[in-house]
């Protein structure tokens, strides 16, 4: 087993009324970026906080490199976490915020300046936290996570509040860190961003695991959510034929007359058209993206609890 592997096993959290996380198990491998996805209220934050010993699980365990967070002798040297944007004292400067963490962890003060530089916050180092923009706060959080040069990074919606350049910067940073062999677990709602960044995904809904695996495999395994684009001068006939002979398909029509068929493959559409004597000008399969897959997998489970 590699050092930086995260293993979540049977993790469960019952809040008073809500079962936020329900017998959840998955693993996160080093050297890869793992996207942790789920609708609002799916239990992502709760899972990450249980992994970091901030929330006590009702059952199950989460380990990092085989140990529970509380058992790590120097936690910040092993794990860096970015949890919420607002967690610094309003009246404290960014630099002092980092120095206070350095003191607790036994890091030299120069680390504070080094990570400020890393996230591009040096100009604001001596400004108070209350004057930071959302993106600056997020960068300070990332700086804090990097203080101990950790081999595992856990980030809860780190792209929140970052501008496009900031998002690209973070993508590059996480990519580089993963390529250095570190473990990156990052929760996000930005599915197109995750499709660019993540190697693996863990998708949960209503506290339960829905799917885990490499992004390409997960997407390829979901060919049935592919969209088939059709150009035809006899749109109405085709729509009727599909409705009559291929149940479960939905067809939408764009302004320019292009039809998009969801719920079946191009071959079926072609065969149906042939049988119905419908003339086709174009028949293309559009590979589903992560968003299509995500929405299909979590359909009906996305309700906020």
């Amino acid at each position: 087993m590699s050092d930086g592997q995260i293993v979540v096993s049977g993790l469960t959290k019952q809040f008073k009324k809500v079962r936020a996380v329900d017998n959840l198990s998955f693993t996160v491998e080093p050297g890869r970026v793992t996207g942790f996805l789920g609708p609002n209220g799916a239990g992502k934050t709760t899972t990450l906080r249980m992994l970091l010993n901030l929330v006590t699980p009702t059952g199950g365990t989460g380990t990092i490199g085989g140990r529970r967070y509380a058992d790590l002798s120097q936690p910040l040297r092993t794990v860096g976490a970015v949890l919420e944007a607002s967690s610094a004292h309003k009246g404290r400067t960014g630099r002092n915020h980092l120095r206070m963490i350095c003191a607790a962890a036994g890091f030299p003060n120069r680390r504070a300046d080094e990570v400020l530089d890393l996230v591009g916050l040096t100009p604001a180092a001596k400004r108070k936290f209350k004057g930071y923009s959302l993106g600056m706060r997020q960068r300070l959080g990332i700086a804090a996570a990097m203080l101990g040069d950790p081999r595992v990074l856990i980030l809860d919606e780190p792209a929140n509040g970052l501008d496009p350049e900031g998002i690209r910067w973070m993508r590059g940073l996480l990519r580089t860190l993963a390529d250095e062999g570190r473990t990156i677990l990052v929760s996000s709602h930005l599915l197109s961003e995750m499709e660019l960044l993540a190697d693996d995904v863990v998708i949960i809904a209503a506290g339960k695991l829905v799917k885990q695996g490499p992004v390409t495999e997960v997407v390829d395994g979901m060919a049935h959510v592919a969209r088939v684009r059709v150009q035809t001068p006899q749109a109405n006939e085709l729509v009727k034929a599909l409705a009559d002979t291929v149940p479960g398909t939905t067809v939408s029509r764009a302004d320019d007359g292009t039809l998009t068929v969801i719920g079946t493959e191009a071959a079926t559409v072609g065969r149906t058209a042939l049988k119905a004597g419908v003339e086709l000008h174009e028949l293309t399969t559009e590979r589903p993206d992560l968003e299509d897959v995500f929405l299909d997998l979590t359909a009906g489970k996305a309700a906020i609890r």
Binding site: L54, L76, A88, K90, H97, A105
Partner: peptide
């Protein structure tokens, strides 16, 4: 000030 998270992480 929600610094408990930072403190207990360290």
């Amino acid at each position: 000030h929600q610094t408990a998270t930072t403190t207990f992480l360290a």
